[in-house]
Nucleic acid binder design. Structure first.
Lengths: 236, 236
DNA sequence: TGGTATAGTGTAAAAAATACAGTTAATAAT
DNA sequence: ATTATTAACTGTATTTTTTACACTATACCA
């Protein structure tokens, strides 16, 4: 028994993969290996296979490219206009992923000719991939203002100046150090380590790490990481 | 030229249609007319047709059932586990819709044996429709705390007590009248009318209406309609 | 005319957010 | 050894926002 009279469609997931290099946000793009728009830049994507869910497909595709698993990913809105892919109709389910750019370096898969692009100077991209990136960025900016998702981009140990730079990078703004520190520490998500990171100053900055227990419990809580007037007008 | 080797899948939209009757939130369900689970309760849904986007499909399906167009609708997360529909694999794109329950009454399509169910006592539903409803409710609770979406459920003219009842219903809580009024009016989204609604008290309550200009401009702004501790831990 | 039921209104206290600048620590240079 | 340098670190006063809380006003009805 089947829904026999109905039209079936291709369904793909596309991964909007962001990384942060300490100063700037980067987007991981690949060079499309086949026509149309061969060699133009594209999000890493792939069709959903018969035996997998969209989430599984997204993880699979992310792993193919980066070698990484257990990465923060979130589905964003489906793209479904009939003409979006000129070859054949494809419904796209985009996912945002945040990865620690350092971890990626060790596992890169060169088959795809991937490259990090600064989000401030993205190349032309195929189809509606640019829109997907905009949507993903918007969602990220909105969500990161209230939830500690950016912490996913950090290595195990990180400093408060690093964390602040991540927020400043995402919103392209300067944040007062004292106020930022106070807000972040008041969430109780962080544990102070005894060690210092000396790589960026003579004095050195203390390392912090996620207090895993509090982090998971309080992940969905509403925090306030950045000043109100920096939050983009968002709809998510 | 086609992506010939790939599997194509059915893609459906399902509409999670909420209404508010002045006291309670209701969900519009239909009795499924075909097997499996014939006559069990179901969200109104339908397959995406070759010539339409998911948004268009959702509008079409909503109109089929309710006769209503230009309704607030928003896509929520795709449901895609391979086994969710026992007949054949279907990717579902659920949409939340908010409709003015009074408007619906005049346009109801009886073909579908639709019924409003109080969200506090929902019947068993087919497949994963219950999960969709939970997700939709959660998203609604989260979003309505910051954005004036519930205003979509109101008739053209409404009173502050009515508006407050809508918020109290959604969060199942009591809100202080003075604080609520102050917050709502400070958004500048409302215009006070000279007329009163006498239907619910002897004194009568003044009507308000949306200040359309401010409403559209400020829709995406972040407001604060309900007390912090009533906002459900949400992730959207 | 008094009773009744809901609408409407203000203020003080607490909490949160903001604006703002000098001190500290470690290293490097002299 | 002293000094210079650079980024990390820290506190307070002010403003704004949020909360808690209770009495008066209005219109109808008996």
């Amino acid at each position: 028994m089947k829904y026999s009279s109905q039209t079936r469609l291709l369904v793909a997931v596309d991964c909007v993969i962001f990384g942060f290099d300490g100063t700037d946000y980067k987007l991981l793009l690949i060079q499309r290996g086949f026509a149309p728009e061969k060699e133009k830049w594209s999000l890493m994507g792939g069709f959903i296979q018969p035996n997998e869910s969209a989430d599984e497909a997204a993880s699979r595709i992310l792993e193919q490219l980066t070698g990484l698993t257990e990465v923060y990913m979130e589905q964003i809105q489906a793209f479904s206009t009939p003409e979006r892919d000129p070859i054949e109709r494809v419904i796209a389910l985009p996912y945002v992923a945040l990865i620690d750019i350092e971890k990626y370096k060790t596992q890169i898969n060169d088959d795809f000719h991937a490259r990090w692009y600064n989000i401030k100077s993205l190349p032309n991209m195929i189809f509606d991939h640019k829109e997907m990136v905009e949507l993903a960025l918007n969602k990220l900016r909105y969500k990161a203002a209230f939830h500690p998702i950016l912490f996913e981009l950090l290595p195990e140990k990180f400093t408060l100046p690093q964390l602040q730079a991540m927020y400043e990078g995402l919103y392209d703004t300067k944040i007062d150090k004292r106020n930022f520190t106070r807000k972040v520490l008041s969430t109780n998500l962080l544990k102070k380590e005894n060690e210092k990171d000396k790589s960026s100053s003579k004095k050195g900055a203390f390392y912090y790490s996620l207090d895993e227990e509090h982090y998971k419990e309080n992940f969905t809580n509403i925090h306030n990481f950045i000043p109100r007037n920096e939050i983009p007008v968002g709809n998510e």
